[in-house]
Design a protein around this nucleic acid. Sequence first.
RNA 1: GGGAGAGUGUCCCGAGUGGCAAAGGGGGGGGACUGUAAAUCCCCUCCUUUACUGCAACGUAGGUUCGAGUCCUACCUCACCCA
Length: 372
Amino acid sequence: MKEFGFTLHNTDGAARLGTVHTGRGDIRTPAFMPVGTVGTVKGLYLGQVKDTGADVILGNTYHLMLRPGAEQVAALGGLHRFIQWDGPILTDSGGFQIMSLSKIRKITERGAMFQSHIDGSKHELTPERAMEIQRLLGSDIQMQLDQCIEFPHTEKQAVKAMELSLRWAERSRLAFGSQPGKGNFGIVQGGTDEVLRRRSAEGLQKIGFEGYAIGGLAVGEGQKLMLDTLDFTTPMLPEDRPRYLMGVGTPDDILEAVARGVDMFDCVMPTRSGRHGQSFTRFGKINLRNARHAADMRPLDESHPCPALSQYSRAYIHHLMRSGELLGMMLLSWANIAYYQSLMQGIRLAIEEGRFEEFRLATKAQWQRGDI
RNA sequence: GGGAGAGUGUCCCGAGUGGCAAAGGGGGGGGACUGUAAAUCCCCUCCUUUACUGCAACGUAGGUUCGAGUCCUACCUCACCCA
């Protein structure tokens, strides 16, 4: 079994080119990880996901705990076998659901008590249970249980959530134990406050993790505040461990975060927006529901290797979206994941060749120009 | 020939039977979505105004009434039942 680790190959400014090594294979960074919350990257076959260049996908502790159940997945041979994905899987701990499902959960020092959004039944998620579930799933990168809070929040709330997350980090780490080939990431909280972020980052490093995530961003604070926060937060993290900005983001967010030293990203945006008719391309955002595409027989990007981008006309996808057809959502989800992965590939190559800043500016300029 | 109905905001369906209201859909136009309770949600859709507001409008033409989509009369159109 290959050891879990991180190799930093090259840097260009603050941008980093690296590889995360796991027992199930390598992850090229900067990486975008498609989100497969309930064991599916919505609308796509995993073969398609793989073919876009994704090295790793996400699963979710909270969702899989409720259905089909962690023990059930374990009995079926683990999540990889269950969903037919042989590459690395990163699982979120349920910390995000503490925020997104705040109306149906209670939080205590011990953990979070959720009322299932599916059937109303009560489930407790402690740091220990969150780690146990991730172990049962067979996750390759297991996130500590944390408390993610929305923006705006009071200073007091940010301190409380950060301190609690830190205590939960220690318990999560202990529960993770030793798992060859697998990694356990701590999550830096603290809102947009530099002092809080520092206390969180230092506390986590004292515990020691295989990687460090930055959580609690892109929760309503706006891009500028998020980037300002990254400006002072990424330098607090060790250079020899991967840095993961959780839940981010738009292609522009990713470009800017890479420029600030982030290595890993995940976001529902390419798949959710795809289902809602919006595509991301090298020409910027294109809303395929708009009337102006009705008679446009051009593909989204004729030069892209992904068929969803190069072989299907905008007019056809427009028609499918207007008609509420599944294929429209599938094609746009596919196209968006493919674009995100090609963006990451472009970023990696640029860092390798020491021209990341040039790449960043040129990419943004092309988004601005569009394709008209 | 006899009997009993229906036409709604000029894209479609459609609630509404005398009183601050012309519901609600669909379609159409646009927007949002960031560790997925999202194939979801929001705004607009007679004219005018930045907005308030004002104005038009319920098949047509009259009438009753303080007040009519709603009641009455005639006509037009559609459609139903029995022969």
